[in-house]
Design a protein around this nucleic acid. Sequence first.
DNA 1: CCACTGACGAGTG
DNA 2: GCACTCGCCAGTG
Length: 110
Amino acid sequence: MPISTNKYRAIFAVVSRIPKGYVATYGQVARLAGLPGHARLVGYALSGLENKSAVPWHRVVNAAGGISARSGGSLADMVQRLRLEDEGVSFDEHGRIRLDRFLWRPEHAL
DNA sequence: CCACTGACGAGTG
DNA sequence: GCACTCGCCAGTG
């Protein structure tokens, strides 16, 4: 079921701004998109994307710094981790990203 | 309109 | 750090 609203475009716009080698959390993307507290919408919006999309969806992780398991298959989970590691993002023994090192900080980037 | 579900987050114990 | 609860919103039946 295709989705196309201004809210989703705002979300995609934010995700597209995440620089390579960094990650952002769902809640963070929601706030930057002007939708504070709507982390679930971010996840829902991304779930509608195709793997070939230009949006770097793999740079969006949950607040714990881990990859959220989506419904359907575990294939995409693996792809996300591999793409992140390929960009220089490392995971710890618990399979979580060190947010203190790789979390995208728009303010810090200015 | 109601109930259920889904890439989440923050608070509490 | 883990388990549980509640809050949030859109899509579907």
